[in-house]
Design a protein around this nucleic acid. Structure first.
Lengths: 217, 217
DNA sequence: TAGATTGTTAATCGATTAACAATC
DNA sequence: TAGATTGTTAATCGATTAACAATC
């Protein structure tokens, strides 16, 4: 069975999501030790759940003391591949592409944005941070030169599939898709859809439900 | 039991997430009828799962024919509160705030952004779409005037908690937080954290796992 | 040591998948 | 009608919670 294979431990999907939260919390934590109680408290997760999740990792906490923040963080860093530099390119130099390129947090994750592309002549040549917006023809060269693994799609949904095709053709291994549409790619390419509106739909729905409750009371 | 109460049907959390996907798929669908088979195929979900999810809704599909796209979409619209106009304000007129304000998809969801605020004198007065960036002092007036329910936080993480406090004080019911930090709010306020880096962490991790597999082979 | 906190096993709960009857 | 597709019940699977022994 896969789970038994120590080479690549599988985490329950739900656990992996929470491990990201722990990672962020610990990144901001300045104490030397933290208890499952406190982690849970801050994130709205039961302490038993926290301990269960952390028990999948190799680092073990100390009874009566808690978890060593630095060591735990180190292991989470390793888990998320933070030790290894990842090169990313962005396609689409609109507001969203610009926002992501300028996002200050990526350096912490050893993620480097090595290129931003657009086909709009008005955008080509524009400076964004340390980069200059390049025309699409440069895409292949940049991917080869930096050995880019991840491509981010920040174009309108009408062009998303076309861009995805180009990325795949040039050997991109994972696509982070911000266009609100479902792109088709070969099975071996990882796609993550990041739908901006999805979050607002959830909020609207939650407000609706709450509203109905209140009206009933 | 709550589930039995027809006034507000509860969905399993996982179902609600998938209903959003169905919603988006159906929004782009032009055929009159669609089968659970096809919905599943396009989204990578088992058809049984699709039928199970849709069975929570009132509208029923037709055996041998499938689901009427328009009717199904109508019910999903109602579910997500799309019939009701929701007013939103954005705090932080940086790249991300600008990207969200300009996002073309919100009108479809009956979401209206009625104000964008910043405390940076260089940004105040700047035009973004139909709006002009206002100083923070105007926040209270705008919330009152438009009866704003949702506030979006697009400021650096250092100021996120401060902005959250202001929003809560002015009666905001739900906060969409893009700052990569955990904000504290009273229990009755709904918060949704939208961590931009979270998606990239997942992608990095997936690439890592795949890498290890390949090296093993 | 006594007490606090971890790690793990067992019990419960919830979600997914399978199977199949209902029905257009 | 026969066949396709839905809707629902039952079986399986996975995740969460509870309980408690281990241990610093």
């Amino acid at each position: 069975m896969l789970k038994e294979n120590k080479e690549f431990i599988m985490f329950p999907k739900a656990t992996l999501e929470r491990l990201k939260l722990y990672h962020r919390l610990l990144s901001e934590e300045e104490k030397e030790y933290i208890s499952s109680e406190e982690i849970g408290e801050r994130l709205g997760i039961l302490p038993e759940q926290v301990r269960k999740d952390l028990s999948y990792l190799e680092y073990k906490g100390k009874p009566k003391v808690g978890y060593n923040v630095k060591k735990l963080l180190e292991e989470l860093n390793k888990l998320f591949g933070i030790g290894k530099s990842t090169k990313v390119i962005i396609v689409g130099a609109g507001n969203l592409g610009t926002a992501i390129t300028n996002y200050p947090g990526f350096a912490n994750y050893n993620i480097e944005i090595v290129g931003i592309f657009d086909n709009d002549p008005n955008k080509i040549g524009k400076r964004i941070g340390d980069l200059v917006v390049l025309p699409m023809d440069y895409l292949e060269r940049v991917i080869k030169k930096f050995n880019v693994e991840i491509g981010v799609i920040c174009v309108p949904k009408e062009s998303a599939q076309e861009v995805a095709n180009i990325l795949v053709k040039n050997g991109i291994k994972a696509i982070w898709n911000f266009a609100p549409t479902f792109i088709k790619v070969p099975e071996e390419v990882i796609v993550r859809n990041e739908d901006i509106t999805s979050g607002l739909l959830s909020l609207k729905h939650m407000l609706e439900v709450k509203d109905q409750r209140i009206r009933k009371d």
